[in-house]
């Protein structure tokens, strides 16, 4: 019986030796101001390599301790987050539309030296004038050309206010515009609200007039297409061309508008 007990105690001898060693380590660490216990962590970056992915950390199922109050609070937070996400979704969609629109614009313009300020309709006032976003805050000036995403001129700024401007569109009775064709023939364009009345200012030859453009000689910022007259029947009388073109394109809130400005 005694020998069995002795065997039983002897098997722990090495354990007690290591227990003693542990105590010794503790004493050394205590007197060395924890330099021993800090040595390994200072040498090895172990725990950073064991970082749990955020995906797992954010898994709410892991949090087993959620009390009812926590769940209610979490629900409220999630609802708020959902609203924020919806707003972000809408903003994201708008930005995507903007990018698409810019892509279309880029394909249709030739002058990349300009800055194109995106704008849109605010409203159509009681006198059927279009109010558009941006005014003096964007350094817009009366007479600045407004183009759509295909790069065609849809009007110019009639009046500019602090944060909005009034657009003289093609269906505005105040619309009056000058343009050049590829043969440097000048044209004056006026509107009666439904039709554009195009008159040539110079003597024309028999050549058919193609697309007419804005031009810096008229104070415009650059050359932008205004209208392709080639598709219309052209009758030149006394070397002068007069053409009446129906205004087909109406502006809407979905219309993407750009105001090109010098950088």
């Amino acid at each position: 019986m005694q020998s069995t007990q002795a065997v039983g105690i002897r098997k722990y001898v090495i354990y007690f030796l290591f227990l003693f060693l542990s105590g010794l380590l503790t004493a050394v660490d205590y007197f060395s101001n924890k330099s021993l216990s800090n040595y390994i962590p200072n040498q090895i970056n172990l725990l950073s390599s064991f970082q749990i992915p955020d995906r797992i950390l954010q898994n709410e199922l892991i949090n087993l301790s959620s009390s009812k109050a926590d769940i209610v609070a979490e629900n409220i937070r999630l609802k708020e987050e959902l609203v924020d996400l919806r707003l972000l979704y809408k903003e994201n969609q708008d930005l995507k539309d903007d990018i698409e629109s810019y892509d279309v614009l880029i394909k249709n313009i030739s002058d990349f030296e300009l800055t194109y300020y995106a704008t849109s309709l605010i409203l159509k006032n009681s006198t059927d004038e279009y109010l558009i976003v941006g005014g003096r805050d964007y350094n817009f000036e009366p007479g600045d050309i407004v183009v759509n995403e295909t790069g065609y001129i849809v009007g110019y700024l009639g009046e500019v206010f602090n944060d909005y401007s009034i657009l003289e569109s093609l269906d505005s009775t105040n619309f009056s515009f000058r343009a050049l064709d590829e043969n440097n023939n000048s044209f004056e364009i006026n509107s009666n609200g439904r039709d554009l009345i195009i008159n040539s200012l110079d003597l024309l030859n028999d050549k058919k007039v193609g697309t007419i453009y804005s031009d810096i000689t008229f104070g415009h910022v650059s050359k932008f297409p205004f209208l392709n007259l080639e598709i219309y029947e052209q009758k030149i009388i006394n070397n002068k061309l007069t053409l009446i073109v129906e205004v087909e394109e109406k502006l809407s809130f979905q219309t993407r508008l750009y105001i090109p400005k010098e950088k």
Partner: peptide
């Protein structure tokens, strides 16, 4: 192994002096 796992535990996870958890682990086994 028990002793060294205690040393590692003390080094990385504990704010106590080195050797304390080694002793605890060994004592648990004993």
């Amino acid at each position: 192994p028990i002793f060294f796992s205690g040393v590692l535990y003390d080094s990385f996870f504990s704010t106590y002096y080195l050797g304390l958890y080694s002793a605890i682990f060994l004592f648990v086994v004993i």
